[in-house]
Amino acid sequence: MANSGELEIPPKLKAVRPYLLLARDHDKRDPVVAFFCRHYAMETALALDKQDKSPDNKIFLSGLMDRLEKSKEDLRSDEILSNELASQAHVETCASKIFVYADNEDRAGRFHKAMLKSFYKSGLLFDVMQTFGELSEDLQKTRKYAKWKVTYITGCQKRGETPH
């Protein structure tokens, strides 16, 4: 399924769009993370579809499921993907790396697009980590902080203020 098809998301399922964009971001660089972003998007879309079924949803869900199964097949030999704990650790490492970069830039007072995007992406990846079960208290706090930072810095930029 072409990537573009993947992003023709029915209106009622549009909440999964950020995770599919993040998956596309990682398709080449980190297929394991891309797989779990799509997996979380699928879980979320299935839950949304339960509330409000529509033929459009079904076409989209089947297409995403096909893509997930193909990804799993393509990554058959990947040791990380075949081990749940290794997968969880891998996604957490990726999320934490992106968060630490953003946090360091923030603490150094360097406010720029890449830093904002990194807070945003790390927040999404901490969401994706819920596919492995409930987040630890620490990760829940980090996830909340990353999302709050995106809102706070975006607000400052809109008001023409310097975030502190």
Binding site: M42, L46, E84
Partner: peptide, 27 residues
């Protein structure tokens, strides 16, 4: 009855997708 049939078909499809997703993780 048609609506009912439609609804049960839709939920069967949902279940099928959920099962496929679960299998993906267990493979």
């Amino acid at each position: 009855t048609t609506a009912l049939a439609g609804a049960s078909a839709a939920s069967m499809e949902q279940d099928e997708l959920s099962q496929r997703l679960q299998q993906l993780r267990n493979q």
